[in-house]
Design a protein around this nucleic acid. Structure first.
Lengths: 155, 155
DNA sequence: AGAGGTCGACAACCACGTTGTCTACCTCAC
DNA sequence: GTGAGGTAGACAACGTGGTTGTCGACCTCT
């Protein structure tokens, strides 16, 4: 069984993501955060980490600024972020995470960590940490590499 | 460094999938298979492995039969599968992978394997195999578990 | 013969992404 | 100063991969 082909590996990675995300979203719904999507979670973290404009968020998440703007619109509608114009640069709309947004981040992080902890219990904390280390080595650079590129192909 | 939180792990898994899929799709396009999407690849494999009706494919991929039917329609339009009525059960439309479909599977598998091989070279074959083993342990059962459930919630 | 389950189709909808285009605005070189 | 070029955000149209709900046709089993 030299199985686990490349295609299977891809499916495992995607399946792993879904396994975590589906559970967290379902639990968030139960805990007073209906309508939240994985993309919201990640975007909120990126915003809080400093990507506080649509363009910056797009670069951070390696998606177009339009996609980022849509996500922000969704977050705003759910009450997780607010937007105000930047006084020193009228082009910018700065995004701030609301208290409810911070609460979502806290709960969401804990739920993700819970799944991770269960996984650690299942295969061993060292093994899981090792997987993370290798994944970072494999694709951590992908993010930084994308950082310098233009997210928008044509203009 | 309590780094790599649960949320980060989720992002790593998703990022890993994208890293593989994006590259394979781009290369497939170059090699005479434009319009192919990751979902097509995986569906084609499942069909070839025996999930030769829309409902069966839906169960296999843990999506609704409607979603599976759409994917099959896409594959048919691209010339990768054909459909014929089952003579012994008039409800069924059996799906067959065409020669071109098999060619796509071959090329696609090789491309996925190439990415996997590069990864193996980068972090070590043993490490990668270990990651796969652990991922299977973690979520391999998820697939089987879903196998018994009704894919359709209400009817 | 009928009840109930399964199959595929169709429609409407949603989330998340894409391009392309537009206007407003900043910045910098001249 | 002014004009060129880059950047920010809005809007529209579209693609993809899912979802529910509903339907008629068709087994299957009692």
């Amino acid at each position: 069984m030299a199985r686990t082909s490349g295609a299977e590996l891809a499916q495992l990675l995607l399946g792993g993501f879904h396994a975590m995300a589906d559970e967290v979203i379902a639990e968030l719904e139960r805990r007073g955060h209906p309508g939240v999507r994985p993309a919201h979670e990640f975007a909120l973290r990126a915003i809080d980490a400093g990507a506080d404009t649509a363009s910056a968020l797009g670069r951070r998440l390696t998606v177009s600024k339009q996609a980022a703007a849509k996500t922000i619109a969704g977050l705003e509608q759910l009450g997780y972020v607010g937007r105000t114009s930047d006084p020193s640069d009228a082009r910018l709309k700065r995004v701030q995470v609301t208290p409810r947004g911070h609460e979502l981040m806290t709960v969401g992080a804990r739920l993700f960590d819970e799944v991770r902890d269960r996984w650690a219990a299942q295969i061993g904390a060292a093994q899981l940490a090792e997987i993370e280390r290798q994944l970072v080595a494999l694709i951590g650079d992908r993010r930084e590499q994308a950082q310098g590129e233009a997210p928008q192909r044509a203009t």
